[in-house]
Amino acid sequence: MLDNSPRFDHLPAAPGVGYKPQHFDELRAEPGPVAWLEIHAENYMGDGGRPIAQLRALSEQFAVSVHGVGLSIGGEGPLDPAHLARLKHLVGWLQPASFSEHLAWSTHGAEFLNDLLPLPYTDETLARVADHIDQVQSTLGCQMLLENPSSYLAFAESTWSETDFLSELVRRTGCGLLLDVNNVFVSATNLGLSARDYIDAFPLHAVGEIHVGGHDEETDEHGTPLLIDSHGAPVVDPVWSLLEITLAKSGPRPILVEWDTDVPDWPTLRSEADRAAKALSPVR
C-alpha cells in the first residue's frame, strides 16, 4: 500500500491526445484544446536521437502521461527488473504527470508477445497483480493508474466481476484507475454485458484518467458482433455517450483520445479532442 499523495491529479482535467511523431510541428503550433499528451513508455527507452529530443521539447509545453504497454503486470512470472529499471529512468528524467499500465499480461518466460492478453479474475490473480502494482509503485515512488482491458472472451474460472476486481486492487494497493470507456463498450458488446451497469459499478472515485478511442466491427462464427479495439478510427457516438454518462457521475477528468493505427492528420485528431472538450464542458 502506497501512502504517497496521489499523483493522478497532476494531469489537467482537459483533453489530451496520444502523441504521434508526424504531428510534432502542427501539434505545437496549433494545439487547440489539447493540454496534455500521452506517450507509450517503450518508444522512449532508446539512448537518444529524435524521440528523446522531441519528448524533451514537448514536455516544456504540455503535461505528459507515460503509458506503459510492456510491463506485463498480470504475468504469472515476476516483473522484469530490467524493464522496471528502464521505467524508473524514464520517469526520473521526464517527471511525468502520470504513469499508467494495463490489467493484462504480455510476457511469458523470456518472450514478449506484444499484445495485451486477458486474465482470469480469481483470488490468485488478484494477489499476484496487487503484488506487482506494489512493486511498481514502490520502484517509481508514485501512484500508478491501472487500465481496464478490452475483452474478446471470458474465463470460466473467474470468480470476480471486473469492476469488483479493480475496486479490490485499488483498496489493496492504493493505485488509481484509468477508465477506458471504449474498452468498456467493446467488452460489454463482446461479452453480452451492459456498459451502463459497468460504469455504475466502477469505482469512479479512483479514476485519474479516461481514454476514448475507435474500434473495428466484426462478427464471430455465430454471427454475434465482435468489436476489435483497434485505435484506428474515430470514436463512435455510443462511446461519446458513455463518456458523457461517466463524466456526469465522476466530474471532470483528463480525457485522452487514442488513435494509434491509420493515424489521421492533425486537424482530424484535434477535432476529436474538440469533441472531448465539449463532453467536459457541462461538468466543469
Binding site: L113, L153, A154, A156, L191, L193, D220
Partner: peptide, 24 residues
C-alpha cells in the same frame, strides 16, 4: 475454459489474440 458472452467455447474470439500478436 475460454468462453464467449453466451458461455460457449471462445472459438474465433481467441483468433483475435492470435491475429493481434502476428500482425503487431
Amino acid at each position: 475454459g475460454l468462453l464467449d458472452g453466451a458461455d460457449q467455447p471462445a472459438g474465433r474470439r481467441f483468433a483475435v489474440y492470435r491475429n493481434n500478436v502476428v500482425v503487431s
